[in-house]
Amino acid sequence: MSPTNYLLLSGLLFTVGAVGVLVRRNAIVVFMCIELMLNAVNLSLVTFARINGTLDGQVMAFFVMVVAAAEVVVGLAIIMSIFRTRRSSSVDDANLLKY
């Protein structure tokens, strides 16, 4: 089996995540879809690290995880704060700004 299969899996996961962002309405689930995209990228990075024979890819994946963790904190805080005023976590309800 070629490691390229991992890349294909990664591409598919990334796409699934991207489509999830488009179709889900719960802000938290949308955000989880973005996390899925980041995970897909990590899989690519790890696979490329192996193909290239350098550890850099793994280090990058590690950084992605750290960044994602920080992003999650900020994102959830923002979602919490809007939930407090709106009592809704649907992204479709945040629709005052348009046109």
Binding site: T4, T15, I51, G53
Partner: peptide
């Protein structure tokens, strides 16, 4: 999504099969 996946798989993934993996 389909188009994107196709692009990734066909455009990117396909070209990588011949590439040998070096290993760590």
């Amino acid at each position: 999504g389909l188009a994107f996946a196709l692009l990734l798989v066909a455009g990117v993934g396909r070209t990588m099969f011949a590439v040998p993996s070096v290993g760590l």
